[in-house]
Amino acid sequence: MTHLSAELVEKCKKVVELYPSKRSALIPLCHIAQGQNGWLTPEAIEDVASLVGVSPAEVRGTASFYDMFHLEPVGKHVIAMCTNIACMLAGAYELLEHAQEKLGVSPGGTTTDKEFTLEESECLAGCDKAPCIQVNHRFFGPMDNASFDTLLADLKSGKLADVVPPHGVLIRIDREHKRKVNYEAIDAERVEIDAAIKERKLKLEAANNATVGKDS
């Protein structure tokens, strides 16, 4: 039920083509997959696994290395509050405490209405606007208790829907251009082309040509 939609699968396939090796698309594909449900559902992980040709355990293992991927459901808005050095010096922990009270959850928790998930994060590279926070990876800062409250209200009311899409939606612009360079043609011209690469290509072709024809 939470497999990737056909549309997203198509999008994923295009991304896979951009890379010299399928597996390289693993992280971009996880981002795309996370855009669908706000988190990486097991079914979506299985889809990504088959698209990039590794086992689901490896996709999950890889995704779990990265903070941005959620393997459990999260709220519509994930609020990441930086408490690292610059923000801390500007009162980030006090702000975090306020946020916890306001939302009634501690870091890692999701409000019962599934609207907000609160996270304590490492430096978000917004230190000139400390204390800075991100909502679904969109920046806000410098924050104080009052501006935080206003932000919550605006997010809830949908006023910021344009700026802050639901969690998981990362890059709203699709790449318009396929790989343009014909590497095969370039390779053909190269005299000193690595024999190994050529051989590997032949190998793959041969493997694809296994006879399974009706006439056999």
Binding site: P42, A57, E58, S64
Partner: peptide, 16 residues
């Protein structure tokens, strides 16, 4: 079918 999951101190061996 087994891989590390998590990072740093929280790294664990996991199956899907």
């Amino acid at each position: 079918e087994i891989d590390f999951a998590g990072r740093g101190e929280d790294t664990e061996v996991a199956i899907f």
